[in-house]
């Protein structure tokens, strides 16, 4: 067996940092729309800047991906699964960038201040338009649920590689050794 080729350290750090942030965001999002207690306000105040942070990191990560050599998938993997793996990564990137942009855009269209921290708000990226706000607000929910779904499939695939196939895919991202 060939030695495992790993993602460079910076790519791995970004992957795990963002995985933690995105999972936090998904749960923060669901928790905040489920409460009318004061926690609502505190969670939304966390949700906006954390979401924008994910947007910035996702752009850095995409650029980094073009610059590094991405470890190839094992030759043993059937072509259909290769395509699926590639496609799922494209969808993950699209959502990591699209979902926060929709969040920013919907608040702009609703004429809400896109507040980051006390005294600082981002400029609007869309004109004030209530119907557009309503559409984007629903889109934000659907895209978030889609991200949830794709992350679960991604996690299942990673565990399939790591626990059943025992190929080099999981260690390429964890930095560990093959079992």
């Amino acid at each position: 067996m060939r030695p495992v080729e790993r993602f460079p350290l910076f790519a791995r750090i970004l992957h795990w940092l963002m995985a933690a942030m995105i999972l936090t965001m998904l749960f923060v999002g669901i928790a905040m729309v489920a409460t009318v207690e004061p926690a609502y306000h505190r969670l939304v105040d966390l949700h906006r800047p954390l979401g924008i942070c994910i947007l910035l990191l996702a752009v850095v990560r995409l650029v980094n991906r073009w610059l590094i050599r991405v470890p190839p998938l094992p030759d043993t993997l059937p072509p259909a699964l290769r395509v699926a793996a590639r496609l799922s990564h494209v969808v993950l990137y699209a959502l990591m960038i699209g979902l926060p942009l929709v969040g920013w855009g919907m608040l702009s269209a609703g004429a809400y201040p896109v507040a980051m921290w006390p005294g600082f708000a981002l400029p609007p990226i869309l004109p004030h338009d209530p119907a557009l706000f309503a559409m984007l607000r629903h889109l934000h929910t659907w895209l978030a649920l889609a991200l949830f779904g794709v992350v679960l499939i991604h996690l299942a695939a990673a565990l399939l590689h790591g626990l059943l196939l025992r190929d080099g895919v999981l260690p390429s991202m964890t930095g560990g050794r093959t079992g």
Binding site: V33, E37, P38, Y40, H41, G110, A131, F133, A134, H138
Partner: peptide, 20 residues
């Protein structure tokens, strides 16, 4: 005061529904 926070959450929902 918990009332303004409750209003904030409820108005967001109302605003979404009526804007659509």
């Amino acid at each position: 005061d918990p009332i303004p926070a409750a209003r904030s959450a409820v108005y967001a929902r109302s605003f979404t529904l009526r804007s659509g």
